[in-house]
Computed example of a mutant assay.
Amino acid sequence: MTSTTLSVGLLGFGLAGSVFHAPLIQGEPRLRLAAIASSRVDDIRRAAPEAVAVSSPAAILDDPSIDLVVIATPNTSHAVLARAALLAGKHVVVDKPMATSAREADQLIELAHRQDRLLTVFHNRRWDGDFLTLRDCVDSGALGEIYQYEAHFDRFRPAIKAGWREKPLPGSGVLFDLGAHLIDQALTLFGMPHTVTADVGPQRRAAEVDDWFHLILNYGRMRAILHAGTVVCRPGPRFQIHGDAGSFLKSGMDGQEAALRAGRRPSGGDWGLDEPELYGRLYEADGGERVVETRPGDYPAFYRSVAAAILDGETLPVTAESARHVMAVLEACARSSAERRTVALP
């Protein structure tokens, strides 16, 4: 590819498109947000005046000047639109989850290979500052052999919110929403588990989809426990990880999403910084204890890596195959909960 800048077409301008994708694309010098398909024309004009607002995805898919299509639409349309974009010869970014089934994911991967196009998935929470810090603790050997990993994504939302995520549709519910994040982080650290045991379901009285889950991923001697609740007024630690050389505990939530929602853009030296009172603590087996400063969060790294993969041939940190593994675990967890049994993974 001879161009030094990629033209991007964004499909969807709801929460994912307007809060996450558009600002991060705008902040990457080698990407140009050229067009957005959405009915929210006024919102587009305010937030992305450089982009052309179009009424349908077809206008972007049929545009030969568009190099990269970003899909930030409801989960039910991910696979259909990704397939259409790949057939149109575009590189593709899909918001997580990749699809609503592992079978759909397999079909997209095969098509991307056949079309010789890049296909990746927006698993942005690999660049949460707390997760980057925890990963450093694991990789450095400071915790020794890991025996238990626990990650929570708890929120306080007792009222049902309007929108497709709360409707009984394929890919709706908290398991496919927040579970995709927690599973991707666990697989990034430890790879695929041997088995999963899951309890997934609704707790709020008016809930039509699951709003609570507790997942146990079995790695032999080690267990990864992933949990999300929707009626948690005072969350406990976000991460706990225990090994034979020590434990690491971290509370609080990475602040990048809140900053993006507030209209901040990823620029300046203070982007992604954590509050010092929320820094994690490392408890050593010999009785020592120390505060571990949180690494800066880095959501911009995702689109930086996408541009480098297309323009420079560099390796993507989020491969389509790794996103497909997340789909396989999501399906196994849903089956485990529905059938009240432990489910083995290949």
Rank of each mutant, 00 (worst) to 15 (best):
L134M: 14
R135N: 05
L118W: 04
I25R: 06
A99L: 02
D67A: 08
Q26P: 07
L15M: 15
S39A: 14
A102C: 07
A88F: 01
N75R: 15
A88V: 03
R83S: 15
I71D: 06
A105Y: 00
V69Q: 05
V41F: 13
D62G: 10
D43T: 04
M98Q: 02
L134K: 03
P29L: 08
D106P: 06
R83I: 04
H21V: 09
R30F: 10
R103N: 11
G89F: 01
L86Y: 01
N75I: 13
D130G: 06
A99Q: 02
I66P: 08
L68Q: 03
S101E: 01
A112G: 06
L61F: 07
T73W: 05
A47G: 15
P29V: 04
G129H: 00
M98A: 03
L119G: 12
K96N: 08
Q26E: 13
A82N: 12
P23D: 07
R103A: 08
L81N: 14
P23V: 11
A72V: 00
Q115R: 11
H78G: 09
S55W: 10
N124H: 15
F131T: 00
D95F: 04
R45E: 10
E28Y: 03
F13R: 04
S77D: 12
G14A: 11
A53Y: 12
A59K: 15
I71V: 15
Q26T: 08
E28V: 03
A112C: 08
A59S: 14
P49L: 03
D67S: 09
K90Y: 11
A35K: 08
F131R: 00
R30A: 06
K96D: 09
I71Y: 09
G14I: 06
E50G: 15
Q107N: 11
G89Y: 01
G14P: 03
V70G: 13
T73E: 05
A22K: 05
A112E: 01
H21Y: 10
A59W: 11
A82V: 09
R30E: 08
R83K: 07
A84D: 10
L15S: 15
E50T: 13
D130Y: 04
Q115T: 06
K96A: 06
A58L: 11
R30P: 05
L15V: 15
V121N: 08
R114P: 14
T76K: 13
A84P: 02
H78L: 13
A99D: 04
D43C: 05
V19S: 12
I25G: 10
F131Y: 00
A22T: 08
V92S: 02
L111V: 15
R46T: 04
L132T: 02
R40Y: 15
G27H: 09
H113I: 15
A16L: 14
E28A: 07
I36A: 01
P64R: 10
N75K: 14
E110G: 14
R30N: 06
A58N: 08
G89W: 04
D116I: 13
V121L: 06
V54C: 10
P23H: 14
L86Q: 06
A72K: 00
L87V: 10
I71E: 07
W127E: 06
S55K: 11
A79K: 05
R32Y: 02
S38Q: 13
T120K: 02
V92M: 03
T76P: 14
D128E: 07
A48M: 01
V92Y: 01
D63C: 10
F131M: 01
Q26D: 13
P97H: 00
I66G: 11
A59I: 12
A37K: 04
L132K: 02
A53R: 06
A22I: 02
